[in-house]
Design a protein around this nucleic acid. Structure first.
Lengths: 237, 237
DNA sequence: CGAGGGTTTGAAGTGCATCAAATAGTGTGG
DNA sequence: CCACACTATTTGATGCACTTCAAACCCTCG
């Protein structure tokens, strides 16, 4: 359970919070494909990801899905039901074998109510996510498919990577999933990626993407973005 | 300044908060077209709208705009810079002559830090907005232009309006603005609205929209939505 | 009445979706 | 270690939705 201490959201959590977690939180492993909960299920727990990937999504009656987010190590989900009517407002599916910690939402709720520093951390956290969603809408309006992929790649690169140096990016999950994350069809993703290749000189081998110069990718993708800094260094994107 | 007491976000604010506001907040009137601040301006104040309409937007170097939101009476904006680097992360423009109250962000910040009930209200507020943004992304993925307009109309209708009764909706601002709010071109909006007319039997006279039966509009628009309830009654949409 | 913005309509182009099929890649059991 | 099955990915062909550019129309307000 020491893992929780490394989650930035919990930097200001109290000893009592961690103690409660030690008593009431459960680590769990889940295989790929497992549905953790679905839209409108009553929400008792939120989850912390220690390993693997989790997809959050909604779907309509006719089965059409829209991917809300795909999360990984250090990220949390399900906590937002606290502010709604204690129902999950999305479905969650394991897309890469995952280790999760299941924690009663009530513990978090209590901590937020009693520990004002924690409440502030939570506010920062939610506010940042709100902004990211706004950015995402902007991107879908302004950027075309290849640019959205370029932006996605840039966000995968660590902030301290210097320019003018060969960089290798490992796509974190299936291309089909990336496509859904970016709001496009798999076919479109495939075609858009090769268009991106033509425009920026990136090299693609399976799930590996290599590029010699960040500059070109930034120039191509971030023209269509209002952020001052590129998506690589901006916390917004 | 009594107006502030009616803002639901401030229901749990302390007497000290309202006192500080009485001393340091300024009411202002602004004409249509006035730019309040632009992206990356240092943020000292947030705003409460008493009257009129305000557009929040971002724009890229080449002038392409993306509308984040269009707000009106009882809504606030600019407060989110508190959790960023004290810069506005969007631009704000008056789109209908507006009366605003300008309040130092520091007052709100202090209130959140000292009054845990207020922190919770704020969390609820931001969390709801985050969810609305998620819904908006879903809508743009799943719904086509006429359906998005239908959904927009439904949200304009008061929740307690009964079905099977003629309803008149007044478009709150320019059609061009509604178009930008929904992420489409004015021409697309115009065409999509008449397509919606064909499908649902609504009647359009300028800025007035009339319909005999909500049911038809709901059936047409909300098929492509994952929300349990229709956009009319759902707090999500 | 006439100027200027908002709105609609028309014609043509573009980007993405869709459907269908081929190909590559991965894991399985023999 | 190979053949098979199954899934992920790519490619091709076609269609549709929305955009873009251009022009007409309409409305309001001085």
């Amino acid at each position: 359970m020491t893992d929780l201490k490394h989650i930035s959201l919990f930097q200001n959590a109290s000893k009592e919070f961690f103690d409660s977690c030690a008593r009431l939180a459960h680590p769990h492993s889940f295989p790929k494909g497992k549905i953790l909960f679905i839209h409108n299920d009553p929400a008792e727990y939120f989850y912390v990801i220690n390993k693997g990937w989790v997809k959050l999504f909604c779907e309509t009656l006719d089965g059409t899905q829209s991917t809300i987010d795909i999360l990984s190590i250090g990220q949390i989900f399900g906590e937002d039901s606290m502010f709604e009517d204690n129902l999950y407002h999305y479905s969650a599916e394991i897309v890469e074998h995952a280790d999760l910690i299941q924690i009663p939402i009530s513990i978090l709720r209590q901590e937020i109510e009693n520990n004002s520093k924690m409440a502030l951390s939570m506010l920062e956290f939610v506010s940042r996510q709100r902004r990211q969603k706004e950015k995402e809408i902007e991107h879908r309006v302004i950027q075309n498919a290849p640019q959205r992929i370029g932006c996605f790649l840039l966000r995968l690169i660590k902030n301290n990577t210097p320019q003018g140096q060969t960089v290798t990016i490992h796509l974190p999950y299936d291309k089909t999933l990336i496509a859904s994350r970016l709001g496009m069809q798999p076919e479109t993703f495939s075609r858009a990626l090769s268009k991106l290749k033509q425009h920026t000189g990136i090299r693609i081998k399976g799930a590996m993407v290599e590029l010699d110069d960040l500059r070109q990718l930034i120039d191509y993708s971030c023209i269509a973005c209002s952020s001052e800094r590129s998506c690589k260094s901006s916390k917004e994107c």
